[in-house]
């Protein structure tokens, strides 16, 4: 029994040390990779997002959607409310 417990404790120490060591290597490897790629590889081209706006700026909300939103606002406010700007939140 003592031998088995000794082996189990040894496994605890060796196992945890190995897991920590491997993940530390993975972390430093990742950091090294990031530094190398930042230095040597061209920056990634990220397509710019269009901002939906109405009344100022470029509008990407189509006329039908505008009409639906305006009708809904009008219905809810009894014709008093007006849509000035549509923004994606």
């Amino acid at each position: 029994m003592e031998n088995v417990m000794g082996d189990a404790l040894q496994l605890l120490v060796v196992g945890m040390l190995t897991v920590f060591m491997i993940l530390l290597i993975v972390i430093f490897l990742g950091k090294g990779l990031i530094a190398l790629v930042n230095k040597f590889a061209p920056a990634e081209q990220v397509p710019q997002k269009k901002v939906a706006a109405m009344g100022g700026g470029v509008s990407v909300v189509d006329a039908q959607t505008k009409a639906i939103i305006a009708a809904a606002v009008s219905q809810l406010t009894g014709g008093k409310g007006q849509v000035k700007k549509i923004e994606k939140v």
């Binding site: 417990m5 189990a8 404790l9 496994l11 605890l12 196992g15 945890m16 897991v19 920590f20 491997i22 993940l23 530390l24 993975v26 972390i27 990742g30 950091k31």
Partner: peptide, 19 residues
């Protein structure tokens, strides 16, 4: 990346339950 180290700490239960 620095948070990845907690993936190691959480393996402690494996070896403790082994004992």
């Amino acid at each position: 990346l620095r948070l990845a180290i907690f993936g190691a700490a959480a393996q402690f239960g494996i070896f403790l339950v082994l004992i």
